[in-house]
């Protein structure tokens, strides 16, 4: 189920502006890969190219290749909608659909995929909510609005919604930045269990978090304001935080940046 991602010579643009330049990297299946770097370095932008969400923004386009196992996501024959069904995403702010109940939120993706059978829907919803460590907290109020949950619960609901469709890859764009430490802990524990089934890529501003949850870490940086962001270095998390190859990486992780 989990798939490998191979990115080759990827340039990312907003209209004429080049936001990210020349990224080549491999993301291993069943592992957690963290993207770190200063604000505006293009790590979130790059993340959004991995499920073609970048194109949703007017003027957003890319050059280069993103391979999911053997399939090029940017081949003209590939439908971006199909890509997003294989590569799930969790956003910075919890965004459950406010007009839907907890159950319907988790079932939303399944229904988009044409699953109508009530019994199978209920099973998948339960499995996903259990998988997101949320089942025990919501099992008695599945018909209540998802927006009534706490921020941390909402984020786990969004994770349940994303994994319900059984994607190959799960992208997380700063999933804990709007949460309190206890909810953050819950999400981090969850990432630890999810990685046995999924390829997980997480963008984070919190270096301790990257060190805690990830197996591999990629450091992004930009030469100057207005210049495109670049991938500076990617290695085992252990190595990045103890003995990075690049001077810029060392400066950033030791807080001597800028």
């Amino acid at each position: 189920m989990a798939k490998r991602i191979d990115v080759k010579d990827l340039n990312v643009y907003y209209g004429a502006f080049k936001a990210v330049e020349d990224v080549t990297m491999t993301v291993e299946p069943r592992s957690v890969t963290a993207f770190i770097g200063p604000s505006g370095c293009g790590k979130s932008t790059f993340l959004r190219t991995l499920n073609r969400m970048h194109e949703v923004v007017p003027g957003g386009r890319v050059e280069g290749h993103v391979m999911l196992d053997d399939q090029d996501l940017y081949s003209p024959k590939v439908d971006p909608v199909a890509v997003r069904r294989t590569v799930g995403m969790v956003f910075q702010r919890p965004n459950p659909f406010p007009t839907m109940s907890i159950f319907d939120n988790v079932a939303a993706g399944l229904r988009l995929n044409g699953l109508r059978d009530k019994k199978r829907l209920a099973e998948r919803v339960e499995t996903s909510l259990r998988g997101a460590h949320l089942w025990n907290e919501v099992k008695d109020r599945l018909d209540k609005p998802g927006a009534g949950l706490s921020g941390g619960q909402q984020q786990r609901l969004c994770i349940a919604r994303a994994i319900a469709v059984r994607p190959s890859v799960l992208l997380m764009d700063e999933p804990c930045s709007a949460l309190d430490p206890i909810s953050t802990q819950a999400i981090e524990d969850l990432i630890g269990t999810l990685k046995s089934d999924y390829t997980i890529v997480i963008v984070t501003h919190n270096m301790q978090q990257a060190a805690r949850v990830s197996d591999r870490t990629a450091f992004f940086n930009l030469a100057a304001t207005g210049r495109p962001g670049r991938l500076v270095e990617m290695d085992d998390t252990q190595k990045i935080f103890s003995n990075p190859t690049q001077r810029a990486t060392e400066d950033y992780i030791s807080g001597r940046f800028g």
Binding site: N51, V81, R84, T86, F91, R93, N95, L112
Partner: peptide, 18 residues
Amino acid sequence: TPTTHREGALALGATKWE
């Protein structure tokens, strides 16, 4: 309609109409 809602649906693999 908040962008976060729209993107949430798109990221689930919804077409524009969905």
